[in-house]
Nucleic acid binder design. Structure first.
Lengths: 124, 124
DNA sequence: AATCTATTTAGCTAAATGCCTAATTAGCTA
DNA sequence: TAGCTAATTAGGCATTTAGCTAAATAGATT
């Protein structure tokens, strides 16, 4: 279950246009890493991409994209797995599914039970 | 339909602990404005609250809370309606429902169609 | 009209964010 | 081993954000 801190991290991560677009592109698989095809030793999803491939599509320096990816990973909405000297990036569908579930619960229980979405949050 | 800018605004709004908690409290109706009972002229939801009532529950100055509420309103996840000299605040359930729907679509269509959530976003 | 209550605006400061370049680390290849 | 590719870390700078107090606005009440 996502706790409050984690939800806030996710919202903060997606509340920036650059990160939103990076996430969009990772999620839609639009930037699949062209090098994958040559690299037969490494087994990754055909949608997986890597840091430099993402950076090619933005007008920002590589370290900037790297930092944004770190934030998306810490929010647990993407995964980053090192294979060889590259890092393969994929969406973390489980976290997104959970968050979606929270919203559904929230909406479905509106009026009858307004507490569910916020879970562990204790009123001050 | 929520466009990209609007979604980013919502995420940014909820990506701050103070605003998240304000929204939580508005949504759950935990801070209903006690003055409502006396004020028989004004018709509002028994869950509705007002700026100063919210501020009472936080260790921040009133103008700080006012500014946060403005941001939540601009993200269209709460409504603020002036009646008399108070502003009554309620959650905007429609926006939350829409956002939840986006997440459901996103998750349900993962793999088969990764584009739906992002809608109007054009790949650069 | 004068005052009271509710809220916002203005203007300030400290801290966080988002970007950069240069340097470093890690793994692969010749 | 030397050099190449991929990514991160370090350090700096400009902008934004999140808080504050004081002052202004708007509606009620006396």
């Amino acid at each position: 279950m996502l706790d409050m801190k984690q939800k806030i991290k996710i919202f903060k991560a997606l509340g920036n246009e650059t990160r939103f677009l990076i996430f969009k592109n990772v999620f839609t698989g639009g930037y699949a890493c062209s090098l994958d095809k040559k690299d037969t030793k490494v087994k990754v999803s055909p949608h997986a991409t890597c840091v430099s491939t993402i950076a090619e599509h933005f007008d920002f320096a590589l370290p900037t994209i790297s930092k944004h990816l770190k934030e998306l990973r810490e929010a647990e909405i993407i995964t980053m797995e090192k294979k060889g000297n590259k890092i393969y990036i994929e969406p973390n569908i489980e976290t997104i599914r959970e968050l979606g579930g929270c919203f559904s619960t929230l909406v479905n229980n509106f009026e009858t039970n307004r507490e569910l979405f916020f879970g562990d949050v204790v009123l001050s």
